[in-house]
Every structure is written in C-alpha cells, then in structure tokens.
C-alpha cells in the first residue's frame, strides 16, 4: 500500500482523533457525565493506526480494556462510541457495555475486553473462521505487555503457530502492566522473543513511529493472507496517562524523567513533522484538521447527550438469540 498524501492525512487525522477522544473522555468522566472506568490510550496512537491502516473491513480485530483507539482506527463511529460511554441507547451496545465492551461487528471490531489476555483466544477463533472461509481475511489481536504473563497468551500463540492461523498478534508494550513496570513482570524483557518457540516471526517495532508500525503490519498481514501463518509484533510505546481512572485521576507514580523522554517522542508530532518536512502538510491544513477533530467530537458529545437512556424494561433484551 502506497502511503500517498490522502492516506497519510487520514492516518494523522485518526491519530489526533484517538488522542482527543480519550482526552475528552477524561474530562467527561471528571465532570460526572460518563460512568465507570476510563483507560486512556493517549500516547499509543501510532500502534492502532499503523496496524489498522493496512486492514480491510473484512479483516477483524480484538481489543482489550484500553480499546477506544482500536475502535476508532478500525472505523467505528465516534458518535456511537460516545453514546456508549454516556450509557445511551444509541451506543454500540445500547448502553449495556460501556467503555470496556465497545464492539462494532459491522466493521470487524470484535470487542474490547475487560480481562487482560481474554481477547486472544477469541481472536484465534475469528482467525479459525477466516481460515475455514478461505477468502484471505486476517485477524489482528491487540494486547498489552501485561497479557504476555497470562496463560491465554501462550495457549493462543501455541495453537496459532500449530495451525498456521491467519492472525497477527500485536503486543503494545507500553512498559507498564497496570501500575507495575515491565521489569517487575518478566524474567527477561524480550516479548518478541516469545515468537520463536511458537514458530512465527517476532518483530520489535518502534511503536511511536506510525510508518514503521504500518510497514511491519503490512508484512505480517501479507504473510497471514497467503496462509503462511501468524506473526508477533512487539510495538514499543508508552502510556502517557494513568492505567485507569474512575471519579478522579490517580496520582502519577512513574519517574518524571521517563515520562518526559517518551513524550518527546510523541507519535503524532513525529508524523506531523515528517509530513511537513515532505511538504505534504501545511500549518494551515494542520490547523484545519485539528479544528475538524474538535468539531467532530463536539458533535459526538451532542449526539450522545441527545440520545435517550435505555428503558429499564429492556434490561433483559439481548440475553439470548432467537
């Protein structure tokens, strides 16, 4: 896939939207307009966008608790996402799921997931379905470095390698499993190194470089499409904010120097600079693009606030299919 100007502008726009969506979600949660927990994806935008850009609508992704970015990158409608955060009937799950359970099966987004590692087996099932269909569809499974310590990660990698499932395992190594640093989680910090025993390529990618993530994903997706089996991408990135918030933002416990270093490698600023340097984007265009994101988010919030709350008489609807 050539990354021509329209495509790059689209990627930049999606990254900015992902960041601003979650910054808005934090403000809405602090204002008590939305409920439950928010797990901001801010800082990791290059991974979702770099991975999802080469995917077709018939390709599928599974996500985790930090899933807003994956939804937006896969093509979900931010108005229905916002309505879900607001707990309204026009939300993707009619208000039954909330932030941690947004899904849009129509665009191949098979769901966020509140359990670390819980999406990996489901992704393997989607990949098995694609293998049986034989039309070359691929499944991408997003998870964090924390999931690598889960049994479900190893079971999924094992069976995917054994059956050559058309799946790309995308580990977003954001350096922290909840509030615990990666060095306290694994005896050896080498996530990509888990690929070899399961007979698949393991690639370390600069997860703050959307073009590098895109290139690595294209190769892994091509491999999966031709039936050559799975890959593991370790995208090294950083979570700018806390692991999770409820009514208030928790205090920062990570070293200030570490946060500053990663923020200096801001994935959005890097793409902007690259595009400006290649004369693909003017300052005016960038300003207009950012303004459009703000307008779209205002529109999404207005849509959500205008949507009614679910009627308690529908509590039991959607339990079972006919």
């Amino acid at each position: 896939m050539t990354l021509d100007k329209p495509r790059l502008v689209q990627m930049l726009r999606t990254m900015i939207m992902i960041r601003e969506f979650d910054e808005r979600a934090i403000q809405l949660r602090l204002a008590g307009k939305i409920y439950g927990a928010v797990h901001p994806y801010v800082g990791q935008e290059a991974v979702a966008v770099g991975v999802c850009t080469p995917l077709a609508v018939t390709d599928r992704v599974t996500s985790n608790h930090r899933g807003h970015g994956h939804c937006i990158a896969k093509g979900a409608d931010i108005r229905r996402m916002m309505a879900e955060l607001f707990g309204r009937v026009d939300g993707y799950c009619k208000g039954k799921g909330g932030s941690m359970h947004i899904a849009d099966f129509a665009v191949g987004m098979l769901g966020a997931n509140g359990i670390v590692g819980g999406g990996l087996p489901i992704a393997c099932g989607a990949a098995l379905a694609a293998q049986l269909e034989g039309r070359g569809a691929v499944t991408v499974c997003f998870f964090g470095d924390g999931a690598v310590a889960e049994g479900e990660f190893h079971e999924s990698m094992n069976i995917a390698g054994l059956w050559k499932l058309p799946i790309v395992f995308v580990c977003e190594n954001n350096q922290y499993a909840a509030n615990n640093a990666i060095g306290a989680q694994h005896p050896r910090i080498d996530i990509a190194g888990h690929a070899a025993p399961y007979d698949m390529p393991g690639v370390v990618v600069d997860g703050n470089d959307v073009l590098a993530v895109h290139a690595a994903t294209e190769e892994a997706v091509a491999r999966a499409r031709r039936g050559a089996g799975p890959s593991l991408l370790e995208c090294q990135t950083y979570r700018w904010h806390f692991h999770a918030m409820r009514a208030a933002c928790p205090p920062e416990t990570r070293p200030a120097e570490e946060i500053a270093r990663w923020k200096a490698g801001d994935p959005i600023a890097r793409l902007e600079q690259e595009m400006v340097a290649r004369a693909l984007l003017s300052a005016d265009e960038l300003r207009a693009l950012r303004q459009r994101v703000t307008t779209d988010l205002d529109d999404a919030v207005a849509f959500a606030e205008a949507s009614p709350f679910p009627d308690p008489k529908d509590l039991m609807a959607d339990m079972f299919a006919e």
């Binding site: 599928r60 599974t62 099966f105 098979l110 819980g118 990996l120 087996p121 489901i122 992704a123 393997c124 099932g125 989607a126 990949a127 098995l128 379905a129 694609a130 049986l132 269909e133 049994g151 479900e152 079971e155 999924s156 094992n158 069976i159 054994l162 059956w163």
Partner: peptide, 25 residues
C-alpha cells in the same frame, strides 16, 4: 479441517469456539 484435534489448551479452545461462532462458524 472440520474435526480438529487440539492441544490440551482449554482456555484457547473455549475462546476459539466463541470467537469462531461470532464469525459464522
């Protein structure tokens, strides 16, 4: 391809059934 002998991996087996079911199998 329709009768699949699996590794002894109950978690992935259970989740795979679910994921494949969500995709038309």
């Amino acid at each position: 391809s329709r009768v699949r002998f699996t590794p002894i991996s109950e978690a992935v087996l259970t989740g795979m059934g679910l994921g494949a079911a969500g995709c038309g199998v």
